[in-house]
Nucleic acid binder design. Structure first.
Lengths: 159, 159
DNA sequence: GGATAATTGTATGCTCTACTAACAATCTCG
DNA sequence: CGAGATTGTTAGTAGAGCATACAATTATCC
């Protein structure tokens, strides 16, 4: 503990004057904080979904397909910013767990139309409840206006 | 393309009234946008660092050790929110590339004091230049006040 | 209409990150 | 001193991302 205090002192000497001294110059890098924030949210998500045993991507895919039945794999991947290979692995896993089924599209024989199974619908209902809980934890540190502003700024990054 | 238009119409029918119709209900989830934004920044980072062949984590570790020579592995991991095993992997890679060296701490025989090699210093200089470029791209969509507000809000999430 | 190009899904393999569990060396504290 | 905590290490597992190659289907162009 005495050693940790020493290191902390070193940090203060090398760190920035404003705010947290923990990261030094890194403290001014937006991308750095975005990554740490993502990590923190990812960890809380994992804890929240340990019982359902679903990942962020899996929930997103279930959610999307639930809203737009018959959506093609390529569309799912495009909207969630995943390439075809990554989308495949996620859809494969959801299908093997009995949450999704693939159907050949009538209008386009290349496409796989995705649909939720009954088990998938049930899982999605539970997932949405867990998402609500998770979001509550996340939003607890912001006013409604701040949450809206945050979403708006994040959208500017990913759109 | 006709099919894509059809799908887009379906989205509009199922999506939210406000803003982008691409994600439907998901559009209101802060964590969802945080993840997409992180992915976008991650991809741009990778493009920016393809020549240097460094990842976000690797740069963060170089940066931290550059600022605080002699920092112990456990401290690096704690500050960057990584466990010991993950920190090991990254330090191992940086060491095998000749950017870092380990030294037993004088004050605590359990700890490995980390130091940059000359090659590590040189890599860090280049990395900081690339980070500046990367940050410029990221911040280009915000006013200075917005950037500051964004960092502040992200910090509330990860601290 | 038929050849060519583009799209979509699939399979394979690689990398990075993260986590768990176990173990050894070292330090702390009662 | 001895029990427990800390730190580093190794090994194994898993998710996510990406690149490449191939087959089937569709779109485009001459």
């Amino acid at each position: 503990m005495a050693d940790a205090a020493l290191i902390q002192d070193k940090t203060l000497a090398a760190g920035s004057e404003t705010g947290a001294p923990e990261f030094g110059e890194l403290d001014g890098i937006v991308g750095f904080h975005l990554r740490l924030a993502h990590g923190a949210v990812y960890r809380h998500f994992t804890e929240t979904f340990v019982e359902l045993d679903l990942t962020q991507k899996q929930v997103s895919v279930l959610w999307l397909v639930g809203e737009i039945p018959g959506l093609a794999q390529i569309e799912v991947g495009t909207r969630l910013r995943m390439d075809r290979a990554t989308t495949m692995t996620i859809v494969n896993r959801l299908q093997s767990r009995g949450y999704l089924r693939r159907e050949r599209s009538d209008s386009d024989g290349r496409k796989q139309a995705l649909h939720l199974t009954e088990a998938g619908e049930a899982a999605l209902v539970k997932a949405k409840a867990s998402i609500a809980e998770h979001e509550k934890w996340l939003k607890s540190r912001f006013t409604p206006e701040e949450s809206e502003k945050l979403v708006e700024m994040l959208t500017r990054i990913h759109e």
